[in-house]
Design a protein around this nucleic acid. Structure first.
Length: 419
RNA sequence: GCGGCCAUGGCGAAGUGGUUAACGCACCGGAUUGUGGCUCCGGCAUUCGUGGGUUCGACUCCCACUGGUCGCCCCA
């Protein structure tokens, strides 16, 4: 074998791809009901968009981006997440001038250069939504509800919504100072990563998984205790709205999220097992301006589809597999084979799926092929049938067979596929 | 970037230093010249991820590389 699939990517083969179509269909239907519209943006953007949008101090920008130079010398990057591109598009197309709010969703691949493992690929897929133009806490709750319903409609159990508020540019600096004040004397107990975070992004120390760091941060000043009045009431109203929507949630005051653009609401969908974090999101009230647009609030989430599938499999939930074919036409003899060509066309024109033999197999081989591909009916056309203008139709599951008029075949199969 | 485990046909998998590399599934053909699923028979790896080394001899031992997988960091 000369060529191999790039590390961290996968081929979705027949039998598997139907599962993807199924969950994408669920996402689209959900978005339709919540009145979100789909947008599709390029898979790559100017590198600078992600540096600015996602944040220079994030792991994504520091070590995970697929960046390349095109033939015109421009630095481009395969999108590591969806929000930056969506915001760019919102600003570039001046959608902020239209009636607000704007409610969008997207489904597609994202790219991050990482070591692959369970639920982590270099090319992975996200379903995400973004809402611009409102700070209403009810919208925060609605976005969280939409994400939660996505898992519910798929039948996934045990999805937890974790909720926090990370404040805004008014109150966060105050918390930041308190945090530095608290952590600096305890420097020695922090891991080396957190040591460098101390002056660059001290909040991220709060969700470090290192044991020693956790002990230190356990009694550290909490963001929720330092929220300004606006952030505080917003946070409370988000929770009220979640209760009205019957979305169960738990507060996680340590949760920070890995992207720098979040303000106020931050949330994550988590589950026991290999998937761990299924997805997450939050409010980003400064991002549109950062990307060159007007002052315009936003909120959204990104959900990992590989992880959703992983969780569904862990719970043993069956998703649709391979489709069969409605009718397999078996033709014997040259004249019958010619007639079979137009028969297939007739079947397909009335909406049935139809197939036939292309390998010059004999009766037995053709029957076997029909059986293997999960055909509902096998239609047998031999010299005798052709002479009498009839055809034999066998329902493979039951073994029942009858002879019908040749020109009634398409109608017969079409009726059959309804029940 | 770091660590564990793994690498034999299309797939699963035995074989742990000695002359022909089990077996199961799948696939193809036949028994059954116009009827699938069951049964029976036959076919299907000059070769064990790649490169080097040890040895009279290596799929089996050693090293390196590559790839897979799982975990850490982080995240989806």
């Amino acid at each position: 074998m000369d060529f191999r699939i790039p590390r961290g990517t996968m081929d979705l083969m027949p039998g598997e791809v139907e599962k993807w179509q199924y969950i994408e269909e669920k996402a689209r239907d959900l978005c339709r009901r919540y009145h979100f519209s789909e947008v599709r943006t390029p898979l790559f953007e100017q590198t600078e968009l992600f540096r600015r949008g996602v944040g220079e101090t994030t792991d994504i920008v520091e070590k995970e981006m697929y960046t390349f130079t095109d033939q015109g010398g421009r630095s481009l990057t395969l999108r590591p997440e969806g929000t930056a591109s969506i915001v760019r598009s919102f600003v570039e197309k001046k959608v902020y001038g239209e009636p607000q709010p704007t409610k969008w969703y997207y489904i597609g691949p994202m790219y991050r250069y990482e070591r692959p493992q369970a639920g982590r690929q270099r090319q992975f897929h996200q379903f995400g939504v973004e809402v611009f133009g409102t700070t209403a806490p009810g919208m925060d709750a609605e976005v969280i509800d939409l994400g939660f319903q996505f898992y519910r409609t798929l039948g996934l159990d045990g999805v937890k919504v974790e909720l926090n508020s990370v404040g805004c540019p008014r109150c966060r600096p105050i918390h930041r100072e308190k945090l530095i004040e608290y952590l600096t004397p305890r420097k020695e107990e922090l891991c080396k990563d957190c040591l460098s975070r101390l002056d660059r992004n001290p909040m991220r120390i709060l969700d470090c998984k290192n044991e020693s760091c956790r002990e230190v941060t356990e009694k550290a000043p909490r963001m929720v205790d330092h929220l300004c009045d606006d952030c505080k009431s917003h946070f409370e109203e988000v929770q009220e709205n979640l209760q009205l929507l019957d979305v169960p949630y738990v507060l996680n005051t340590q949760m920070v999220r890995g992207l720098d653009y979040y303000t106020q609401t931050a949330f994550e969908f988590v589950i026991e097992g290999g998937a761990g974090s299924l997805g997450g999101g939050g409010r980003y009230n400064g991002l549109v301006e950062e990307i060159g647009g007007p002052e315009m609030p936003g909120i959204g989430f990104g959900l990992g589809l590989e992880r959703t599938l992983l969780a569904l499999e862990e719970q043993g939930l069956e998703l649709p597999a391979r489709y069969g074919v409605d009718c397999y036409v078996i033709a014997l003899g040259d004249d019958a084979k010619k007639r079979a060509i137009s028969l297939l066309k007739e079947l397909r024109e009335v909406g049935c799926s139809a197939d036939r033999d292309y390998l010059d197999r004999k009766m037995k081989g053709q029957m076997k092929a029909a059986d293997r591909m999960g055909a509902r009916y096998a239609a047998i056309l031999g010299e005798n049938e052709l002479k009498e203008n009839r055809i034999k139709v066998k329902e493979l599951a039951t073994g029942n067979q009858e002879t019908i008029q040749l020109d009634r075949l398409a109608d017969y199969i079409r009726q059959g596929r309804k029940d």
